[in-house]
Design a protein around this nucleic acid. Structure first.
Lengths: 396, 396
DNA sequence: CGAACTTTCTCCACTCGCAGGACAAAGGGC
DNA sequence: GCCCTTTGTCCTGCGAGTGGAGAAAGTTCG
């Protein structure tokens, strides 16, 4: 099947497409309630969208007590590919134009293998999803990578944990391979966009989205749009100093937040605690698996292990200290915590909250929810689909 | 004379007014080069602006080698009043519509005397400026106050250093007194807008403007517009923890940046150093004045006093630590240092730079200028004029 | 069950914003 | 002084957009 290539011809059409994406099928009258256009003009633009094939008729609408109206919706055969490349695994998902996930695959993988190997795997996973009949091709794709991105060009820059990716033309290469438009962004920004589209941040204009996984990053949304910074490295909070003269960090400094708390740091600490005989629970798990991860710590904590709980609390306090500073600075309306360590759950959240509420100014924290992300592993791929749909649903 | 009350009727007129404000007198042809409008349409809008009186004819333009063209400019009798209320002094200035300062007064004053006393003084100063013949009245006024502001309403909220100001309807009250539209904002945001309009930040979309005076604040500009946060307290970095378990702060916490370095903290430290006999230079100044301020420390440092230099360096290091974190987080394209302590000059700047370049990631600091503000004391009042002109030069 | 009211959709006439060409006015350069 | 360039003005025509008049197809209530 040939893919859609049409784009909205003007701002009105773009607006309508986004309303249909976010609100599902709608009658012309319902659309008219949401835009400031006369009925006649609205009808003209909807007709044009129908002609392009981006939008299709969709039966009768629920009656509001008058002449029956016909719904329109985004073409249900449109398909977006959301790709979320993490440090140690890849998520690939297929969505429809309303950004609902139709199929989702996750595979472990080491981003350090470099872009060629990683994208081979991504294309393979995309192929598997296609083979299930979910899609015959893709109309667009969003890609998240775990490092800074020069956004306009879609090229990673100087990614510390991704040697070999610096300057790799991700956008161009994948656009060619997939045969569709591609947009590339930092994985944390995509998580923020995911929570903004379908998660806890749906109604908030200014919020922070802290992702704690192998490393730590922070998505910044100001006035409803992602702030990427001058060189695309905004939100890179893993190397903010959390502990003066603290642990040495891979970046060459000491006391970086990431060195004191992250999926990787937590695992190291747990192994050490087990070896020192501080925790029978952790030691037992170490003996079985040969190594420990954040998941083990979460399980030990759930079983009431004091050492595991302490590790989580201390980590949460460190993160909380840094977040407290960011909250004072940025004055967000919401802080979302996400990433691999959300399995640590309420213990972590409580430690973070305590620290933020203690250290930030009352005016900034007075009505500030600090919550876990709602979408879990799917936040990234939904954000990726959102990224490319925002692009395609804008006038060319 | 009756004041102008006209506002641009549409976005084109708003655009033209801002071009004339920022670029001075222009011919229709020059304006045409800067906007995407046909000559005919441009002429129509310019004619309408001439009718409103906001814009007037201004003689012949410099020839570009063809039919001679007539300049238009903003009405030279338009007057804005810029007011910058600091913790210990007030600046009041009169500008024309091009935001050039025509007259400027500064007076010491204690903001804790409350809004009624302060505004009495402001109105008195405005009256003095009028009496010189610079203005017969004001077409608009911008007001900066040293604390968070609920921006849409123009009302200070919970200002720690301004008891008695909480909830005072600054915008409404002054609008009535002055008989013109008024906008209110945090003083630090206005300083940022000042440097953006006429100072070092003219071409930068994302930058931070750190104001170190009695307290410490930070203006945040993202994508060319000021970020004020959910409750208007964004940029309030004075109470970010700079030193774990450090000095007690008035806010109840320990180790706040402001407790370790600010105009007030520096003065305290200098007095203490003088009393402890660490610095003959400072002791002499203390004996003469009975007290010390940042100005004394600056003078002592300029005279080569080692203790004064140490105080500045240590303070700069503290501020630098915090800024380093903010730079990693926000990834600005420029950091501007301003406020009362800019007199400390290069010593301070060097300490800040050292710390930021050491602690932030190379990608964020690679091409990051850290400079002193260019406008000094006038930044605030220019920013204030800019604030109200942005408002008045937008469609009603 | 029918009359009256609502809601939705379509068609049409009219206004207005705006572009772009034709033309006039007024220079500069050789 | 002739030709080219730049600027300003006028005019025509197109397309966007509004709002009213019906028509179609419901709901509600007596």
């Amino acid at each position: 099947m040939r893919r859609m290539t049409a784009r909205p011809a003007n701002a009105h059409q773009a607006r309508l497409l986004k309303l249909l994406r976010d609100g599902g099928p709608n009658s012309r009258a319902q659309l008219g309630d949401q835009v400031d256009l006369s009925r006649s003009k609205l009808a003209v633009e909807v007709d044009r969208l129908l002609e392009t094939g981006l939008v299709v008729a969709d039966g009768l609408a629920a009656s509001r007590g008058g002449r029956r109206s016909h719904n329109v919706r985004l073409n249900p055969s449109l398909r977006f590919l959301g790709v979320d490349i993490g440090a140690t695994s890849v998520d690939v998902a297929v969505t429809n134009a309303e950004l609902e996930i139709l199929g989702h695959l996750n595979q472990p993988m080491d981003v350090r293998e470099g872009p060629v190997a990683v994208f081979e795997q991504v294309l393979d996973m995309a192929g598997k999803l296609k083979a299930t009949g979910l899609a015959e091709g893709f109309d667009g794709s969003g890609i998240g990578v775990p490092g800074p991105v020069r956004f306009p060009e879609g090229v990673p820059v100087a990614p510390p944990i991704m040697p070999g990716w610096d300057g790799f033309p991700v956008r161009e290469a994948l656009s060619q391979e997939l045969g569709c438009p591609v947009m590339v962004d930092n994985d944390v920004n995509l998580m923020a966009m995911g929570e903004q589209h379908a998660g806890v941040a749906r109604t908030v204009a200014d919020f922070l989205c802290v992702k704690i996984g192998t490393g730590i990053g922070c998505g910044i949304v100001a006035g409803g749009t992602v702030h990427r910074g001058t060189t695309g490295s905004a939100g890179d909070i893993g190397h903010i100093q959390a502990v003066p003269d603290g642990r040495p960090c891979a970046c060459g400094n000491r006391g970086c937040l990431e060195a004191h708390f992250s999926g990787a740091a937590l695992a190291r600490d747990a192994v050490q605690a087990a070896q020192q005989g501080l925790s029978a629970e952790l030691a037992a798990r170490l003996a079985v698996n040969g190594t420990l991860t954040a998941v083990d710590v979460a399980a030990a904590a759930a079983a009431g292990d004091a050492t595991a709980l302490d590790l989580i609390r201390e980590g949460g306090t460190r993160v909380g200290q840094v977040i407290a500073g960011l909250v004072s600075f940025f004055n967000p309306g919401l802080v979302v915590i996400g990433g691999g360590v959300t399995g640590l759950g309420h213990t972590l959240l409580a430690a973070i909250r305590t620290q933020v509420y203690r250290q930030s100014l009352p005016l900034a924290t007075g009505n500030l929810p600090i919550v876990l992300g709602e979408l879990g592993q799917t936040a990234g791929v939904i954000g990726a689909a959102r990224l490319i749909s925002d692009h395609l649903f804008s006038p060319a």
